[in-house]
């Protein structure tokens, strides 16, 4: 790990990390040599991207096909009023480089699909899912399984949030072990349809980032066998234990999903890429 030396500025910039016994100089170097791919530069991606950059993650990829709209600004704090009409990935890139000019940023101003998803995430150390529709979420989960990349998935609606981490390899429950298929139309609305408290998205984006940094650093207990439910109105966090499902369509004994599946966006949601 010690194949480069910190500059004085880097020691000062990351001093609060380096002071932590669990991170230290070696951990900080590890972060600086690591890479993270963020699906969606929206409500979850906003805090996640800012803190990944601030933490010194060396390379960050971002995919989002949308432009900034005024209705995004109640929660997507990486963008500002002057960014309305700009590509979200370019607006996010600018904010990242303002925090940490040493960060290498790769932007993809497009929605993930069965043709581009694997190519986009290949080579990254971790993927954070901050998309806002079921087709993309299942695509990202399958893609990470096939590419053997750790996935930290967060999602929100109204006053609630969900978080789980999926690690590659046998014995680790996948996303579909918990949620085998997208819900039928009408059961779960999008934030565009049902609303979301902006700060709740921020909480979940931050938890997603903390979990991602732990995975990159190899420290602490990873939520690879647990699932977190956050309820802002009840001020409660609840953790439930996940299991590997032998009947899982993706990682079970007789998987029916052996390649990426393109779900029809209009069948499951009416929202855009990142609410």
């Amino acid at each position: 790990m010690s194949d480069f030396q910190f500059t004085e500025e880097q020691i000062e910039r990351y001093s609060r990390h380096i002071l932590l016994r669990e991170v230290g100089g070696e951990g900080q170097k590890r972060l600086m040599k690591s890479s993270a791919f963020m699906v969606g530069a929206g409500g979850l991606g906003a805090p996640a991207l800012l803190y990944l950059a601030a933490a010194g993650v060396g390379k960050i990829g971002i995919a989002d096909g949308d432009v900034v709209e005024i209705s995004n600004l109640q929660r997507q704090v990486i963008h500002g009023t002057p960014d309305i009409g700009r590509s979200k990935v370019l607006s996010a890139e600018e904010a990242i480089l303002r925090i940490n000019p040493e960060c290498e940023v790769h932007v993809f101003p497009e929605r993930l699909n069965v043709r581009n998803a694997r190519r986009m995430v290949q080579g990254y150390d971790i993927v954070l899912d901050g998309s806002d529709n079921f087709p993309t979420r299942f695509l990202v989960a399958d893609c990470c399984r096939f590419e053997a990349i750790p996935l930290v998935s967060a999602a929100v609606l109204r006053f609630e949030g969900q978080l789980l981490t999926v690690l590659p390899g046998e014995g680790n429950p996948c996303y579909r072990c918990l949620f085998p298929e997208p819900p039928p139309p009408g059961l779960v609305p999008s934030c565009q349809e049902a609303g979301v408290l902006g700060a709740v998205v921020g909480v979940m984006g931050m938890l997603q980032t903390v979990e991602s940094l732990k995975v990159l650093l190899g420290i602490g207990d990873i939520m690879s066998h647990h699932f977190l439910l956050y309820d802002a109105l009840e001020a409660s966090f609840r953790t439930v234990k996940r299991i590997s499902d032998r009947a899982c369509p993706l990682c079970g004994e007789n998987p029916s999903i052996t390649e990426l599946v393109e779900y029809d966006v209009t069948c499951t949601t009416t929202s855009s890429e990142t609410s």
Partner: peptide
């Protein structure tokens, strides 16, 4: 017993 759906908002 708890029941929950996947969420997709982001």
């Amino acid at each position: 017993v708890s029941f929950f759906p996947p969420l997709a908002g982001g």
